[in-house]
Nucleic acid binder design. Sequence first.
DNA 1: ATGATGAATGAGCCAAATTCATGGGTGTGT
DNA 2: ACACACCCATGAATTTGGCTCATTCATCAT
Lengths: 294, 294
Amino acid sequence: MLERIHLAIVQEVERQGSLTAAADILHVTQSALSHSMKKLEQQLGTHIWLREGRSLRLTQSGQYLLALAERVLPQLDLAEVRLREFARGERGTLRIGMECHPCYQWLLKVVSPYLAAWPDVDVDVKQKFQFGGIGALFGYEIDVLVTPDPLFKPGLRFEPVFDYEQVLVVAKGHPLASAAQVRPRQLAQEVLITYPVEIERLDIYQQFLLPAGITPRRHKTIETTDIMLQMVASGRGVAALPRWLVQEYADKLDVVPVRLGARGIAKQIFLGAREADTAIDYVRAFVALCSQTP
Amino acid sequence: MLERIHLAIVQEVERQGSLTAAADILHVTQSALSHSMKKLEQQLGTHIWLREGRSLRLTQSGQYLLALAERVLPQLDLAEVRLREFARGERGTLRIGMECHPCYQWLLKVVSPYLAAWPDVDVDVKQKFQFGGIGALFGYEIDVLVTPDPLFKPGLRFEPVFDYEQVLVVAKGHPLASAAQVRPRQLAQEVLITYPVEIERLDIYQQFLLPAGITPRRHKTIETTDIMLQMVASGRGVAALPRWLVQEYADKLDVVPVRLGARGIAKQIFLGAREADTAIDYVRAFVALCSQTP
DNA sequence: ATGATGAATGAGCCAAATTCATGGGTGTGT
DNA sequence: ACACACCCATGAATTTGGCTCATTCATCAT
């Protein structure tokens, strides 16, 4: 009924001053415009222009249409541009899922050069998923997933992005601070501070305490890395974190890393994405950037 | 290229959940929709839906289109209605949104001279909005908004239309009736009657009780001003209303206004409209009339 | 398995949009 | 005053593109 072309005609006629000129701009004949508008006028039951001599003057209806056109057409034009940008992978929102609390610090380092390189791509970070990180990937809640637990399933691609050692963090004055390594039973009388996630996902339990049949004296959970380390520094407990993270904080806080067991706990962080999305420039670029960043 | 029908399809598919159902609503075959959208997808170079099994899920492009549709289609629909109204010689309908309960009494005073001055314009008053009054303005649900909370955003214009003092209303025999002013703590044992809106929008809470850390003994809500004042007059509680409103009722009911705090609560009511609509004479006239009416 | 449901596809048709050809009306320059 | 340029309207011819129909393919539930 009232179509985009009608708005375009009204707008262009106003700009050009005549149907004929507008027809040229719109790459159709003057006749086509005349027919189109006549039909619209019949359907609406109102004239859009007053024919005065050989020129047209907008009626009230026409002015209303013109205002509508000026308001709506730019939105449609912009939409076409945007959609083509989406198509070429030049614009979009990269939704990053995090299944690894301390990785947040690492992510920040990657995101800032990424944002600089892709000014038209927005980044969104999500940390809670109804059906787990993998589910969020499959369910298109997120586009990439930062996780220590890759799952090689058809349709997904995981790449290791960095390795680190998970260590125990203790306060500088703590008896274990000068130890070369710590054994499970030495934690039996300690307060262990972790992020609030299931025990199954805490390596210090899975790979260290539980195999030895030990549990800590108490288990506290804290959301944020900063506060967690403050607590450790003040002697309220010990925590398990990546070595690089502890070293970064070592300047500001009196915390010391200690190897967990004789060999230490080696960890690897993976970046997962949907196979299909590797076609999208800005997704591929993010994965590539992460692989390069040590 | 990107036509109205495409937006309608995206919107309707989202509402109905399937192409087939949407096709019924739009009175065409499923095949037609499939062909149309396929063509659009080819022209844009991007998919609009991910075909998952037998259902469709919007891509980023699709979500963008959906947002565009929700924004643009109502405007086109409204335009058709308006233009037909113009065609019939009617001027149209001025849809007034109210976000301020007691203003209704004031509105009546403005509307009657307006109706007299604009016999071809109908007036419609709406009080419920899904996304708030501002949202209703942007979404073309209403044409003007009466509100105590203006929001100076591009595309909207707000003008103050009248000032008043918010006062406490008590029954004539009430202990506070003869007080020059009331303090927050004096309401601690009172029953407070308000309109049923969120506490954030009740000035007596925001500007009077909460800063003093006081809550009334009980809080009742009543929809209508008349009944509210009947309740106050019969000693069932106290309420906060505009002074002019209380004075109007003072003849019929035994209610007395009392200043809230030493300085009183000053309020200002604004009339908001879309910038683009200032071109419409009967909208402009309404705003002008409101500004003049004290 | 089997039927039901929903989307995709290709062929063919038809309506609607466009063009073509033309005429009427209005300013303008000589 | 007359010819000419310019602009819009109109009817008929033509072409395009959108729609339907018929069918296939895939998925899901029984």
